[in-house]
Amino acid sequence: MTDASNDLTMAHTTAGSAARAPGAGGAADVAAPVRIRVSNLDKRFRTAGDGVVAVDNVSFDVRQGEFVALLGPSGCGKSTILNMVAGLLDATDGEMAIDADPVVTGKVNRKVGYVFQRDTVFPWRTVEGNIGYGLEIAGVPKEERRRKVERAIEVSGLAGFGSSFPRTLSGGMRQRVALMRTLILEPDILLMDEPFGALDTHTKLEMHKTLLEIWERERQTVLFVTHDLGEALTLSSRIILLSARPGRLKEDFEVPFPRPRDAVSLRETAEFGQLYSHIWHSLGEEFRRTKAE
């Protein structure tokens, strides 16, 4: 055991009382079924040389109702892992399963929703058209579609922009559209690839508020890739820390803050600061390793 893991134990005990408080949504329920299972996952990219090992023997489970953040320095393979789980990318070795069904590359699982880091909103569709896209191609009747889209627009704070084209919206609003486009299909598993990575700090906090509100109500199973420690702590109930390339599992710990959380005031609590600085050191080692290479 390293010093870092001792610190971790301490962080657990200090914040543990909050986790066990009534209404707390932090700790994983061990009785809950496993929704995402990743075992001994490897990914090597063939390049001009010998090939780069991006992901090295990664295993973890995500249980029903967990909000798991996959945290690590840039280039550690965390997005690669997510894309493999989503079936967008082949694994070199290892297995992934969603509800015990093996993930097949190129085959879309209707239970899974995916939110991209890059802006993938369709510029030729209005906000309504974008949000309703999944329902439209699934053949949902127009009236029901309109009702659901209207509600999604309400929930996401896009009221009044329903008939606008995306180019008139800010980056944050476009990402809201992308988020609602996925959420409207009510996936119970949500894969998110740094969805707020391109946004400024203030917009990001606003998005955290919206996402927390939705998640605390719906409790989807979430796997959320990020390199932003504050974001991981604010949103997730568990953080999986990956090492610098090649991505290996470094640490796995609970985020014990009670729910409902407030994206802003949570950051001012002592527990937040303690956990932040603990993980920061652990993460700091990985950043230094990334730079040293």
Binding site: L88, R110, A138
Partner: peptide, 29 residues
Amino acid sequence: VDRDQIAAARLLGASELTVLRTVVIPSAL
């Protein structure tokens, strides 16, 4: 055509033909 937009449409449940109709054609227009 943006590959991520195609991937997004697929993940939202679009078949190859739907991707062609709702993403590729409008984008190439």
